[in-house]
Design a protein around this nucleic acid. Structure first.
Lengths: 207, 207
DNA sequence: TAAAAATATGACAACTTGTCAGCTATCATA
DNA sequence: TATGATAGCTGACAAGTTGTCATATTTTTA
């Protein structure tokens, strides 16, 4: 959490720092990102930075919580459009990310995707703990069409969503990284994985 | 890859360095691990270290490739014992890891698990690229009982194994971290996830 | 207006990694 | 055995990192 001092700053100055941080974090991974670079870019002295944020992690969490929230909102929107079909919604998300990648000027969403992608595999403690997994599950669980899903036990919905997100995340984020050249192959792969998850991995024996 | 110079070193000296590295990497994550600490512990001067390994990543890869290989061998053994049932083998692996965790003196296997766990979520580029995913798939694919699995397309076996490993990895590793107190709950959770993956997420409509 | 509270700041300490010039030991050959 | 070549060893160093803190400035309060 940023300090009260930071929140009291004029909007303009806040954004300047946040934008500089976004630039740096979308270029380098969390560990490689340099506070020196950020404050030079934002034009504020070192001491001031530590007045506003406890440390690099604090700043990163603050940025990420906004981004994760944004992405979650997008997924909610897609889920509504697909009438609760979580598999279709995830494929839509893949396409959305892919489309954004092809637009050369990435803008805010692009930067967000770059950051998420660049830190996709990061320690859960840093990236995901800032938004509680429970909150994610609640927000999505409400919109998912449960009739479509094979639910036997109480926690099945949560586990299904958790697995889906854990598997889809890297596949979608990697599609967002500029190094991955062939988008259509990545899409086919993602689609196949979703198909497997839907219908199950084990051969059904007629009993 | 370590330099020829390192490989020419007397076994004793090699091990001293490798053991010091293992100690450090099982205590701190890759990024937090300090070469200073390692060389102080191993009793070699800084210059020598860089004579043997190109950098920290080089050393880490070398260690990890051995560990991943070790874990893979174990999984192969379990796979044979379970007559190719990959789901049972993964559950056995969970139990094996759990058991090792409870033995207080961790030893080599324990250190390996600690390192894997501590860096479970790390960038794929560093942790997993050292052993080619293809090799993992080949080694496991040979031992898996394909008759048990629902295979429709050519790449289904690969995709199933990839998803299984990606999902199981964190769940197993987290069971290995000392912070996680309740092992039986973690086991039940892992078992439920495996059940969902076997039978599929989508409700089967009778057509 | 004067004192008090809040905010700003850059020099600093304590680390980090990787390099490199110069050292020493080993080994083959004349 | 002496000499030259090759391989290996080493610590000081440059260039970077982060977070702290005493001091200076501004703003608010009495």
């Amino acid at each position: 959490m940023p300090s009260a001092t930071f929140l009291n700053l004029p909007q303009e100055k806040q954004e300047k720092l946040l934008e500089a941080a976004t630039r740096e974090f979308s270029r380098r991974s969390f560990n490689d990102a340099s506070i020196n670079q950020i404050i030079k870019d934002a034009g504020i002295p070192r001491g001031s930075f530590y007045m506003y944020f406890a440390d690099k992690t604090d700043l990163f969490r603050y940025l990420m919580s906004g981004y994760v929230d944004q992405l979650l909102s997008l997924l909610e929107e897609l889920l509504i459009r697909e009438q609760g079909d979580i598999f279709e919604a995830l494929l839509d998300l893949f396409d959305y990310v892919q489309r954004r990648r092809n637009e050369d000027h990435l803008g805010e969403t692009g930067a967000m995707l770059a950051i998420l992608g660049r830190n996709a595999g990061m320690q859960r403690s840093t990236v995901l703990e800032m938004i509680s997994p429970g909150e994610i599950m609640d927000r999505l669980g409400r919109l998912v069409n449960a009739d479509q899903l094979h639910l036997e036990q109480e926690q099945d919905l949560r586990d299904i969503l958790a697995v889906l997100l854990a598997v889809s995340g890297p596949l979608i984020y990697n599609g967002a990284l500029p190094c991955d050249t062939d988008g259509t192959a990545a899409r086919a792969h993602f689609k196949n994985v979703l198909r497997i998850l839907r219908r199950g991995m084990e051969r059904q024996t007629l009993s």
